[in-house]
Design a binder for these strands. Structure first.
Lengths: 154, 154
DNA sequence: GCATAAAGTTAACCCCGCTTAACTAAAAAG
DNA sequence: CTTTTTAGTTAAGCGGGGTTAACTTTATGC
């Protein structure tokens, strides 16, 4: 581990400032749309990773199948998620976002987008380029970390 | 609003990837220490902003004074927080972290630190410098945004 | 001084997410 | 074809956080 105080300090400062702003907005948006955080998380996963079944919900969120079933059920009742039989395996269910669900995701992204715009407005063009490059490096690094974690889990 | 697709895209990608990792770790740490997220948030606020009273808890978290009282009570019972009479106004209570509370915060910071180390390991020295600079710009920008928000609230 | 406002607390109640346990139904194994 | 495993559901019950309502205690305004 190559020590780099400047790096550590910069990342920590950023995390402090960014996490608070971001998490708050996140939670607020979820609440404003009438969803609890766990429900909202499922919707987001469904958006990012595409359709999947109950068992994957229970694995990804580390809850029992029963909890997953109940949680998803509320999303279905509220029309955000569609739950249909998997034709390949009639025991399994395939979960998908409905139009309403996709619309919710779209609105959420828009809100974040707005914040990004504001942020961009505070930076000069050259700064924006530098930031873009840096974030791309970071994103790549995080993905590599995650890939590592798969091969040798903690 | 100067449009910059590269910037937007980079920030969004980063947020997606970072938020998931970070929030997960966060929630897990809170749970592993026997605290719920709301309880943990109070501890963190107490750490960042120093001592305050019940009414501020209820304002900051947008909950009723009753809820704040109950929430804090659990933290007091578990020894993370100290609740004492404010000598200036005997109706008010002054909340403070106990040693145990501070120790919790310290451990949390350490865990984040560890993640930052891992991340640093994935970057070259020059990359780390670039990232540091970029994050400092971003942190500054966010703080300016927050300052703006105070003057003309949404 | 007395009425009113402010800071917290307590109690009753609700909703939510989660777990365990018991169950149904379909697929896989033998 | 029967047994076992797998996917998911339902029901009962628990604990958590939230609310409203009623209350106590201390400050303030007049």
């Amino acid at each position: 581990m190559t020590k780099s105080p400047q790096f550590d300090q910069a990342v920590r400062a950023w995390m402090d400032v960014f996490m608070h702003r971001s998490m708050r907005g996140w939670a607020q948006f979820a609440k404003s749309s009438g969803l609890s955080m766990p429900q909202f998380s499922i919707v987001m996963q469904l958006h990012h990773k595409g359709a999947f079944g109950m068992s994957e919900v229970s694995e990804r969120f580390e809850i029992t199948p029963a909890a997953a079933s109940q949680l998803v059920d509320k999303l279905v009742q509220n029309g955000f998620v569609q739950r249909e039989e998997d034709p390949k395996d009639r025991r399994a269910k395939s979960l998908n976002l409905t139009d309403k669900g996709r619309e919710l995701v779209r609105r959420g992204a828009q809100e974040r987008y707005h914040w990004v715009d504001d942020l961009a407005g505070k930076l000069s063009a050259t700064e924006r380029v530098k930031v873009s490059e840096a974030l791309e490096m970071m994103t790549k690094a995080v993905k590599e970390l995650e890939a590592d974690a798969v091969h040798k889990p903690a």
